[in-house]
Write a protein that binds this DNA or RNA. Structure first.
Lengths: 216, 216
DNA sequence: GAGGTAAGCTATCAGTGATAAGTGACGAGT
DNA sequence: ACTCGTCACTTATCACTGATAGCTTACCTC
């Protein structure tokens, strides 16, 4: 399905980790090109220029590789979000900017986002998702919750349980991102307008009625 | 993985359609037991008591079978929703009841819901999702949009483009359902409270500020 | 130069969805 | 009552998947 590239030269002793990097890069590239389900271990190995079993000397299995690719993508989100300190959450505008970073990240890194929040791996019901993937999602949610809690504790929002509010608003955010990713052919309204209005609606649910944006 | 049951007796001439029903029933049962990705065609055939290739005399392929199972599940949603005529959308309470039906359906028929709104099949990027699955989702959304449009045209809501509002609110609904399905082990707040508050938040985004529910 | 070992190979496995080709029972037609 | 077509179903097999076993080879150290 994916063209096989030429053989790569053997790595010198002790530099086997470079191969590991090459594999991760190739995997990320192929995943974002063709989607994570469409890329086989042989495709990845072919793109790197090695035989398929080599992958298993660097990663326990395919899911292990997937988990590491996801982790890397989410460390980038971490970087994007880090400038937004908790103290910077001063009101509606800051909340909206913060949400927007998440939405943009999800749309720009669809495969990482899918893995962290949408993927359900259940070959058997007992088998759980890789804890690192869960952790990436959980950490992201916690960044969100922390900042929301600050807004709430400052009395800038309607009163309420910060955890409950965070889960509700997060679900609202996620709904838009995941639907845009999963149903790209749906007759969506203009994306920019849709995102803006959606975030406005979420903000309306969070902030005091007097701050509510008038529509039209 | 799934135990093989005994051989079924051959169907008499002209009653081959009974086999088709048996396959659909077995598939639905296995899917909801073990999840749609964990069930193979051999599992389904084994449960019915026939050989695996027989499936292909009744369905073009696995996805065709999946699509039909989904269609059936969604026809049940159609039945649940049909008592709620467009004219019955008289305000916030009706809106909430209507939303609640969808949420409950999603949580009760997780595999059907997943297929209609969460599943992305991309063995190759060109290959699209089965149109019947897309249609089931689209139809559901349209029911939602119709009723929302009635609320808007009656002047019961904030003014705004009904289509945009519908997409935004639907995304909000979907976010909660899909996250609850995809991340069952997440430390969620009490489910009932979460759903109620979430729907309240969505309603707050839709209705005039004077109708906004006070929190606490 | 020799040997150990890191790096990578080929061969092969069981499981998947899917297809080809054959078997056999049943019921309509004479 | 016998034929014979065809419906219902079978076994055998395909290409592909993720994964493992075990061998080979080239490099670096001594």
């Amino acid at each position: 399905m994916i063209p096989v590239e030429g053989r790569s030269t053997r790595k010198p002793r002790g530099r086997g980790n470079e191969r590991r990097e090459e594999i991760l890069n190739a995997a990320l590239r192929l995943f974002s090109q063709s989607g994570v389900t469409a890329v086989s271990t042989r495709d990845i190995a072919g793109a790197v220029g090695i035989s398929q079993p080599v992958l298993y000397t660097h990663f326990r299995n395919r899911d292990d590789l997937l988990a590491e690719v996801t982790e890397r993508a989410f460390s980038e989100l971490e970087q994007r979000v880090s400038p937004f300190s908790i103290d910077a959450m001063t009101g509606r505008a800051a909340f909206l900017r913060f949400c927007r970073i998440y939405v943009d990240f999800g749309l720009e890194q669809p495969d990482a986002y899918r893995m962290a929040f949408m993927l359900e791996k259940r070959k058997s019901r007992l088998e759980a998702l890789d804890p690192r993937i869960l952790a990436a999602g959980l950490k992201t949610f916690q960044r969100f919750e922390e900042r929301l809690a600050r807004l709430v504790s400052r009395g800038l929002t309607r009163p309420g349980d910060a955890r409950l509010l965070a889960q509700t608003l997060w679900a609202g955010l996620h709904g838009l991102v995941s639907l845009l990713l999963a149903r790209q052919d749906f007759p969506w309204a203009d994306r920019e307008t849709l995102i803006t209005r959606h975030l406005d609606m979420l903000a309306d649910g969070l902030f005091q009625p007097e701050d509510v944006t008038p529509r039209r």
